[in-house]
């Protein structure tokens, strides 16, 4: 009997939690179909639009949104690929090989992941200005400062889990360290690399400060930056903002639905002692 009550309360907590978590998305989704007039005043609290419309979607596709999605995809994929690769090499070395300065390197990686991003923005801006790299896809390079440390941490944990016996038997067979790495370790580590890649993908997709600073030009805006530019001086067209929000959120939703296992494992690896 008692247990039944507990479950009831728990259910209420869970439902309430889900409502709070999902409400903004649902509300923005509804708004994106409301004509501008119903977004205002009395219509503001209405759940179902009287005259649903697609005009906001048509409007935003006339603007910069498609191009910004393209930019986001380019920037995110490039970052994910090169960061995962570079991080795999480094993580393997850290997890398996003995070399001088390993701890210094690890401290450096850790420090990088901790200090405020703002500190690197000014100097990178100056350097990019001198090199003529402002307003270009070169912005993926400094993306490494936010993604590389996380990727390395996740991968070190994963490499450490692979039994050493495999490498030992391979070296007895006469394979070199590098061959072992590519032929034996890498395939085994693929799930881990994939996990790291997903986390890198999400942080690159969400990046804001570097793009807004280094790529002020429209043509190179990523989706999170472009959507923020939809606001005007005295008035904001919330219908368009809502439509754009829906469009930009969809890729994230897909990633989350498809790869939730990897995301959770990536989030918690390195932070939980097993």
């Amino acid at each position: 009997m008692k247990k039944h009550y507990i479950n009831k309360y728990l259910l209420i907590i869970i439902v309430l939690y889900l409502c709070i978590i999902l409400f903004p998305f649902i509300w923005v989704f509804i708004t994106s179909f409301k004509p501008e007039k119903e977004i205002w005043g009395d219509g503001a609290l209405k759940l179902i639009p009287n005259n649903p419309t697609f005009t906001h979607y048509q409007e935003i596709f006339k603007q910069n949104i498609l191009n910004s999605l393209k930019n986001s995809l380019i920037v995110t994929f490039v970052t994910t690929i090169y960061v995962s690769f570079v991080a795999s090499l480094a993580a393997y070395a850290i997890a398996r090989l003995k070399f001088f300065g390993k701890n210094i390197l690890l401290s450096l990686v850790l420090a990088t992941s901790m200090f405020p991003q703002m500190i690197i923005v000014g100097p990178i801006y100056n350097a990019f200005e001198k090199l003529g790299l402002l307003n270009s896809y070169a912005v993926v390079l400094p993306y490494s400062s936010i993604t590389l440390p996380v990727a390395i941490f996740i991968l070190v944990t994963h490499f450490a889990k692979i039994p050493t016996s495999l490498e030992e038997s391979a070296s007895i067979d006469g394979a070199s360290r590098l061959t072992t790495f590519f032929k034996i370790i890498l395939p085994l580590a693929l799930p881990g690399i994939f996990t790291a890649a997903i986390i890198v993908f999400i942080s690159a997709w969400n990046e804001f400060l570097l793009t807004i600073t280094l790529n002020p030009d429209y043509a190179y805006h990523t989706a999170p930056v472009a959507i923020n530019y939809l606001k005007g001086q005295f008035q904001v067209y919330w219908g368009q903002v809502a439509a754009a929000t829906v469009v930009v959120t969809i890729p994230t939703l897909i990633i989350v639905l498809l790869f939730q296992k990897q995301i959770i494992s990536g989030l918690t690896s390195g932070s939980v002692k097993e």
């Binding site: 807004i212 002020p216 030009d217 429209y218 923020n228 530019y229 939809l230 606001k231 005007g232 001086q233």
Partner: peptide, 10 residues
């Protein structure tokens, strides 16, 4: 951009 501050930065 429509946002004046962002335009200025640009």
């Amino acid at each position: 951009p429509n946002d004046s501050n962002q335009m200025r930065d640009n």
